[in-house]
Design a protein around this nucleic acid. Structure first.
Length: 115
DNA sequence: ATGCTGACGTCGC
DNA sequence: CGCGACGCCAGCA
């Protein structure tokens, strides 16, 4: 078999983790990257989200924000306001593209899944 | 094939 | 305390 490397699986793993995010919660790119063991590849996680639009089952990319709880990737949604609207619809308070009570909403896979 | 960019994060100066 | 650079992986010119 080819050395699929973690590359191909990286996207898949990212999607899997994002899909595990419970409703009303959110996580950060770095948290996911760290959970996958790539720590520094947070950028690639965001890149995976870009590809998540065409992935099934649906990937709640709107639950993934930067470590500051800011909807940095809202501009990539359609429409961009959908991200905030969706989060708010799930009970997440978002003001000025920033999640309120971020530490409370934050969902760390390496912490929640590592039970 | 090479280089730059991109939905980030951490370290250094 | 503020700004800059590097690292990581994949896509595109």
């Amino acid at each position: 078999m080819k050395d699929t490397r973690l590359a191909n699986d990286f996207f898949e793993m990212v999607f899997a983790v994002v899909r595990l995010i419970p409703e009303g919660r959110a996580t950060s790119y770095g948290a996911i990257a760290r959970y996958l063991g790539s720590g520094s590849s947070a950028r690639t996680v965001g890149w995976a989200m870009n590809a998540s639009h065409n992935v099934l089952p649906w990937v709640p990319a709107h639950r993934v924000v930067n470590r500051l709880g800011v909807l940095s990737g809202k501009a990539h949604f359609q429409p961009p306001e959908a991200m905030q609207k969706r989060l708010h619809n799930e009970g997440v308070e978002v003001i000025n593209d920033q999640i309120q009570h971020w530490e409370r909403v934050f969902w760390d896979p390496s912490k929640e899944l590592l039970l």
